[in-house]
Amino acid sequence: MEVIFMNRLSKLSGQHEEHAQLWIGEEEGAWHLGWSRYEEGDREDSSWYEGSSWDELLHIYRHQLAIQMSEGYRPLIQGLFHESEDLKSRSYGGQRLHCYSERYGNEELYADLCTWRRRRAAADRKAPYFIATNRLLRMISAFVPQTMDELMQLPGVGESKANEYGQEWMELTSGVERSTAFPLDWVQSVLSEDEYESWLYKQKEQKYKQELDKFTTRKQVLEGMKEGYTLEEIVNRSGLSRRELIELLETLDLEGYETDSLLDAELAVMPEQEQEAVWNAYEELGDSFLKPVLHKVYGGDKPGGGNLEQVYERLRMIRIRFRRHAEAERNAG
């Protein structure tokens, strides 16, 4: 195997320094990604990836590397994913307050704030994150503001939010003992650089995990389509809901992937006359919204006793073909 990339990393564990190597190799058209850890003369190897997809390797590389760096490993050669620029641009202000609040927040107060948010969201008929984000509630729990002036020193609290919810927050924080004070410029000196960097890499780990999951799901859907699986089989394989899968099919079709085989199989049970009526409704009403098309074709009734979600599925599948046809006509013109 030819190693095409290698970097050495190390971390301090008490008075002991641990070493590791991250490497990428190629052998007979297959990519290999691995991690080797050295401790007291012993070497422990871990294979992170072996396969033909460079894109998949990169997704796994970023996620696994972020895990190791959040646990304290630092590279000999910087720039593994432009972390030096990222750290420089995010070293001050709200990010450090966010880091401190996650590491040193008052969990009991945070739970009380979350309970308050659920009740207020239900009363106002709003999504909880419109009331206050987890990040903001973490900051309130860590810094325990007890006046409106202190509250408004927290990132994410403007005059409008303070006027609307501030008094209720003050009621929750008023009886809580705190060991810190405002203003919060002391956070800069309390957080060590290594502690802050490890927290930032933990955020990267979560971000890259989401990207890896999205890539894996997309790969499973494409493989399922290639193998001729039904919509339900792909749902079971990928973990997506039927609606999420059809929305992904819309994206894949726009990107040029072949979706007709799957659409043919799913629409085979739908009468051609009904499909034609849906197509004509798109031509008349446009394809931006489904409800006008539904009412145009079916009025207040659902076809064949089917459930409404099934009807919308078919409308979305026909819309995939309609949009492709409309795009082809625009290009031809």
Rank of each mutant, 00 (worst) to 15 (best):
K291W: 13
N106A: 11
R218H: 03
Q275L: 07
E56V: 00
Y100D: 01
G72P: 09
Q68C: 14
G25S: 03
L58G: 01
V293R: 13
R90C: 06
D287K: 04
L87P: 05
Y92Q: 12
R74I: 02
I234Y: 09
Y110H: 14
L76V: 07
E108R: 11
Y129R: 08
T217L: 09
L12Y: 12
H59S: 11
L294F: 15
E150R: 14
Y110N: 11
L58V: 14
R237P: 02
I320S: 14
P75A: 02
E211L: 15
P292D: 12
M139E: 05
N163A: 14
E309Q: 12
Q188F: 05
A328M: 09
A127W: 12
Y110K: 13
W199S: 11
R135V: 01
Y201Q: 07
D149H: 08
A20E: 08
I320F: 14
N331R: 15
T173P: 10
W48I: 00
L231S: 06
L294W: 13
V269I: 13
S84I: 05
E211V: 04
E108F: 05
M148Q: 11
E17S: 08
G299F: 01
N307S: 07
E26N: 05
S288E: 15
N331F: 07
E205V: 01
E27N: 00
M152Y: 01
G286Q: 13
D260A: 13
E71S: 02
G34W: 00
W199D: 10
Q68V: 10
W279N: 14
Y92P: 02
V293Y: 10
E211W: 05
S70D: 02
M317G: 04
V144I: 14
Q78Y: 03
E159I: 12
L240W: 11
